[in-house]
């Protein structure tokens, strides 16, 4: 023994690591999104498939180019660009033009993520940055919805939220839950999103406090409004299953990078989103407010983290991380 062992690694403890990795987390997110993705392709046809492909491909290419330009060692292997690509397509209307998808994906990666320093450093959810950009540049396209193949409730061309807000027409819960209403690619079926998210919750890849506090806040606030004026304001169940709330609460607000790291912080973050969603939906000018609510609360995450810093062991506080 001696010389031949000179290649022994000298890193600092711990010398064993769990099997968790960024790649594994991202792959899990991708896999759990697939049922909802598949269902939306079935509902909206080939164009939806193209949207997903173009969005993911553009995200990967943009990421690759920027990483090269910044001379960073990080490769595409972590899979985070694929997640952004899929999520961006999921929050766009079914017939969104493909060149628009390309533009949105470039903005999502370059402005939403890489400008801040790449994976881990971004403040805002990249996919939502992409969508916000498209909402500002293509206001007509972003609000043009078509009915899915299996329309369970063919009341109008509008989304359930727009129908509620501008026409006072309600959509059935069955249609909302199972999917079969107008809306963005990924927001038409609450069921498939929930199924996927359960796995992530079990694996603790998403912090359950965030979606739960969003749902509870929306339900309670929605109920209050509903009690005040049932004719004008929908009941809480409608709020929960309509529009982007499911995908937003389960997949956007729970993005690790852009959500708080403490338990109390997660609750504050979720409640904030819930309040904003209900206010924008019922009192604001837009039919849907999930995107802006999340982006707005993203900006407060550093502050929330600082304010909810746990009391260190032995300083008299309770365990409240």
């Amino acid at each position: 023994m001696g010389k031949e062992q000179s290649a022994m690694v000298l890193s600092i403890s711990p010398h064993i690591k769990s099997k968790e990795s960024v790649r594994r987390i991202m792959l899990s997110v991708i896999i759990t999104l697939l049922p909802a993705v598949g269902y939306s392709i079935y509902q909206f046809g080939l164009h939806a498939l193209f949207m997903y492909c173009i969005s993911v491909a553009t995200c990967l290419v943009s990421e690759w180019v920027v990483v090269r330009l910044r001379k960073r060692p990080f490769s595409l292997r972590d899979g985070s660009a694929i997640v952004t690509g899929i999520l961006l397509a999921m929050v766009l209307p079914p017939k969104f033009p493909l060149y628009g998808v390309v533009l949105g994906a470039v903005v999502a990666i370059v402005i939403g993520k890489q400008i801040f320093g790449g994976v881990g450093y971004n403040i805002f959810n990249p996919a939502l940055i992409g969508r916000a950009f498209l909402a500002a540049t293509y206001p007509v396209f972003i609000s043009s919805y078509v009915q899915p193949r299996m329309a369970l409730d063919a009341v109008s061309q509008a989304t359930p939220l727009a129908a509620m807000k501008f026409e006072g027409v309600m959509t059935s819960y069955r249609a909302l839950f199972l999917g079969g209403t107008g809306g963005s690619l990924g927001e038409t079926s609450a069921l498939f999103l929930l199924v996927g998210a359960v796995y992530l919750l079990v694996k603790k890849y998403i912090k359950w406090r965030i979606p739960l506090s969003i749902f509870l806040t929306v339900a309670v606030l929605g109920e209050i409004f509903h009690l005040i004026n049932p004719a004008k304001y929908p009941d809480p169940l409608f709020h929960l299953f309509a529009g982007g709330l499911m995908i937003g609460a389960l997949y956007m607000a729970t993005d690790m990078v852009t959500s708080p790291i403490t338990k109390r912080g997660s609750v504050i973050f979720g409640c904030g989103i819930g309040v904003l969603v209900v206010f924008i939906r019922l009192l604001g000018g837009l039919p849907e407010g999930v995107m802006y609510a999340i982006l707005f609360m993203n900006a407060f995450v550093p502050l929330i983290n600082r304010a909810t810093k746990p009391k260190i062991f032995g300083t008299g506080g309770r365990d409240e991380r």
Binding site: G118, Y205, M256, T262, I312, F313, R321
Partner: peptide
């Protein structure tokens, strides 16, 4: 880079 998953925050015995 840190992706702020908060796994470490949950396991730290000294909070």
């Amino acid at each position: 880079p840190c992706i702020k998953c908060s796994f470490c925050v949950q396991v730290c015995p000294t909070r």
